[in-house]
Design a protein around this nucleic acid. Structure first.
Lengths: 192, 192
DNA sequence: ACGGGATATGTACGCTCGTACATATCGCCA
DNA sequence: TGGCGATATGTACGAGCGTACATATCCCGT
């Protein structure tokens, strides 16, 4: 086959194509969301990404490295959306509304985020390297919240959001948006 | 060897010895705490419990059944201790102190509980059968809290406890007991 | 005492897995 | 254009897995 013009001109010496690596990472997240870390294997990820098995060990020295990169990317994505929604608030009232939306809408958006979040927490509970990811994630969340409240309140608020999200997700008992709104508002209130 | 007198007299027709089954379940929890659900196998649990591999499939039709029983027992244990500590409170102030102790001391007691809790949540996020366990667990927690606050507040308080526990556990940033106490107190306060 | 059903165990099969490594293909420079 | 590192892939190996099932052991009623 005659070599067609390269679709994208290479810059200098392109030694490495990051696109393939990225596809593998995204495929890994999809596989994890579907079957959990327990059900994730090089072969499954390779199939999902449309790459040969050999690519796995070529691009990632180990499964742990792949998981680490995948969850880092995931945490970053969630952080970005969190920041967007929170930053759009203009005062405490709209901050409360933004939080309520985050807690309830992210859930409705699909189970995948819940699953990936909990899989990450599970890894973090046992391995220091993954705890760094959750640590950075929480730090970013607090930094965003600190545009509206002080550092102490940001800690508390972030924890409440976490708990509400998990309980809304894992408990079929009806939990209205009103309840969430009340809880957030009361936490934000000045002590009597 | 001459048959010595049976150490415990059997009641009527003892068809089945629950002790072995119990040992297997406890061994499963230990193995899960150590290596996660992902690293749990029939063989590992059998070795830990000191029973032959064949006992696994004899007492439990599948790995899922074993996991289900193990996590049910775990959730019940935690619930019982939660109930004891909360019920010992006499007023709202001592309730707050009890909650602070639960959030901070359970963590110090060891990582095992955190790990097992998150492993359970992870399963619950994907499988209805395990979500029933978290559902019942949360219902029991609320029932205990409702001795002090109304149902709505019990929901909110339970969620806050969850979030604080996880954030204290998964984030190395220093989180004092004072901060926890403040958050709980403020959530419990009447709206201004 | 002993036979037979209930209870428990050892073993082997087929499968999936991570990984190593020999091989193939590419892309650039002389 | 030719060739040679760099980049990428296919394959095979050994280990660990769940599970089925033939066999062994126990216990009780007769």
């Amino acid at each position: 086959m005659p070599p067609a013009a390269s679709p994208e001109p290479h810059v200098a010496t392109r030694r490495h194509d990051p696109e393939r690596r990225n596809r593998i990472i995204d495929a890994a997240l999809a596989v994890i969301a579907e079957g959990g870390v327990a059900g994730t294997s090089h072969r499954r990820v390779a199939e999902r990404a449309g790459v040969p098995l050999g690519s796995m060990t070529y691009h990632f020295t180990s499964m742990d490295e792949l998981l680490h990169e995948a969850f880092s990317r995931f945490a970053l994505r969630i952080s970005e959306r969190f920041a967007e929604r929170i930053s759009a608030a203009t005062d405490l009232d709209s901050l409360v509304s933004a939080i309520v939306n985050i807690v309830h809408d992210d859930l409705a958006a699909g189970q995948d985020e819940l699953v990936l979040t909990l899989e990450l927490y599970t890894l973090a509970a046992r391995q220091r390297a993954f705890r760094q990811i959750t640590h950075d994630w929480m730090r970013r969340s607090r930094a965003v919240l600190e545009r509206f409240v002080d550092a102490r309140m940001a800690h508390e608020l972030d924890a409440l959001i976490e708990g509400l999200f998990i309980h809304v997700s894992l408990d079929p008992a009806p939990r209205s948006r009103d309840l969430t709104r009340d809880a957030v508002r009361r936490l934000l209130s000045r002590s009597p």
